[in-house]
C-alpha cells in the first residue's frame, strides 16, 4: 500500500481512505483483522452497548434491485465481552474504530470510556438508535446529539466520530451536524441507512422480522453523496462518506463531495472482501491519470 493513498480524518491517519462500515463483520477480533488484511484503511466494529443484545428475529436482510434492506437490531455481546475482540484486532495491527450506542448520553459516554481501555483508535457514535425516553431517533435531535457528543468527549481522549442517520430533511441534518461539531465531535460519518421496508406479496407481511429496516447499497449512494456535500459546506470538521460505495468511482465521488474517507459495507456483498483493494487500486489509477498526487487534492473538489 503506497503512501499516495494516505488520508487523515482529523488527527487520525489512515493508510488509505476505505473503511469497513459499522455493523458489517465487526463482531470478532479475527473477522475485523481479516477485513484489515484484505486492505481496508480502518475497520469499524459492530455497534456495542453496555448490555448484551440478541437483535431482531429474522429475516434480518432482504435484497432489493439496487440495494439491501436490513434490520439486525444492533446485536452485540455487550461492551465487557467485546473488549477482548478489539484488543485482538489491535494486536494484529489494525486501525480500529469502535462503534458505540446507548439509550442516552450517559450510556454512550460510559461505553466509549470502556472501549478506550482496549486502545481503539477512535469511537464512532451510532446516533441512529432509538432514544430511551422519546421513541424517536437520537440523531434527529440537535440537542440530544450535542449532549451525547459532549458527554462522550468528557470521558475519552481518543477522537469521537458522530455517525448521522440517513436523513433527507437536509435542514435538520445540517443542524444536527453543527450541534455535533459545536459539542466537540472530531468527525462526522454521513450517513447511516435510510428507513425502508419490503412486503411479501404472497402473505402481505413485511419480510424483515422487525417490519421496517434500513436501506443500504447502490440505491442510496446519490442520496448520501448529496448529504455529504451539504454537511461539508456546513462544518469544518472532517466528513466520512458512507452509502453504496462499490467501485472506486463511487469513492472518488464521495471524496469530491467533501469526504476525507469512505466506508464500505454492502459493497462486500457485491464484490467480496476484495472490494477494499479494488477500490484503492481504482483510486490510485484515477489519481495517476488525472495527475493528483494526494487524496487531499480530491477532497471537496466539487465545491
Amino acid at each position: 500500500m503506497g503512501s499516495d493513498l494516505e488520508t487523515a480524518v482529523g488527527r487520525l491517519r489512515l493508510r488509505n481512505p476505505t473503511i469497513l462500515a459499522a455493523g458489517i463483520l465487526g463482531l470478532t477480533g479475527p473477522s475485523l483483522l481479516r477485513v484489515w488484511n484484505a486492505g481496508a484503511g480502518a475497520v469499524v466494529s459492530k455497534s456495542v452497548s453496555r448490555e448484551p443484545s440478541e437483535g431482531y428475529p429474522g429475516p434480518t436482510v432482504v435484497q432489493t434491485p439496487s440495494g439491501l434492506l436490513n434490520a439486525m437490531g444492533l446485536p452485540n455481546p455487550g461492551v465487557e465481552d467485546i473488549l477482548g475482540e478489539f484488543r485482538e484486532a489491535k494486536k494484529g495491527g489494525a486501525t480500529v474504530i469502535a462503534s458505540v450506542f446507548g439509550g442516552d448520553g450517559e450510556e454512550f459516554a460510559s461505553v466509549a470510556r470502556e472501549v478506550e481501555k482496549a486502545k481503539v483508535d477512535a469511537v464512532e457514535l451510532n446516533l441512529s438508535c432509538p432514544h430511551l425516553e422519546t421513541l424517536s431517533i437520537i440523531g434527529h435531535d440537535p440537542d440530544l446529539v450535542g449532549g451525547v457528543v459532549e458527554r462522550t468527549k468528557e470521558e475519552v481522549k481518543i477522537p469521537v466520530w458522530a455517525k448521522l442517520p440517513g436523513n433527507t430533511h437536509i435542514q435538520n441534518l445540517v443542524e444536527v451536524a453543527k450541534a455535533a461539531e459545536a459539542a466537540g465531535a472530531d468527525a462526522l460519518t454521513v450517513s447511516n441507512t435510510y428507513p425502508a421496508m419490503a412486503i411479501d406479496l404472497e402473505t402481505g407481511k413485511t419480510i424483515l422480522g422487525h417490519g421496517g429496516g434500513g436501506l443500504s447499497g447502490p440505491a442510496i449512494k446519490p442520496i448520501s453523496v448529496r448529504l455529504v456535500y451539504e454537511v461539508y459546506e456546513a462544518v469544518r470538521i472532517p466528513v466520512i462518506g458512507s452509502g453504496g460505495v462499490v467501485t472506486s468511482e463511487d469513492a472518488v465521488e464521495y471524496l469530491m463531495a467533501g469526504a476525507s474517507a469512505v466506508q464500505i459495507g454492502t459493497g462486500i456483498m457485491e464484490r467480496g472482501l476484495g472490494v477494499f483493494e479494488e477500490v484503492c487500486s481504482g483510486i490510485r489509477s484515477f489519481m495517476k491519470e488525472r495527475g493528483f498526487g494526494k487524496i487531499s487534492e480530491i477532497i471537496g473538489l466539487s465545491h
Binding site: 463483520l25 473477522s31 434480518t60 436482510v61 436490513n70 446485536p75
Partner: peptide, 17 residues
C-alpha cells in the same frame, strides 16, 4: 447465522464466515 450473505458477522469462526 442471520444474514447468510457474508455481511453480519454472526457466524464467524476465526477469520471465516
Amino acid at each position: 447465522m442471520k444474514c447468510a450473505i457474508g455481511l453480519c458477522g454472526s457466524c464467524c469462526v476465526g477469520p471465516y464466515r
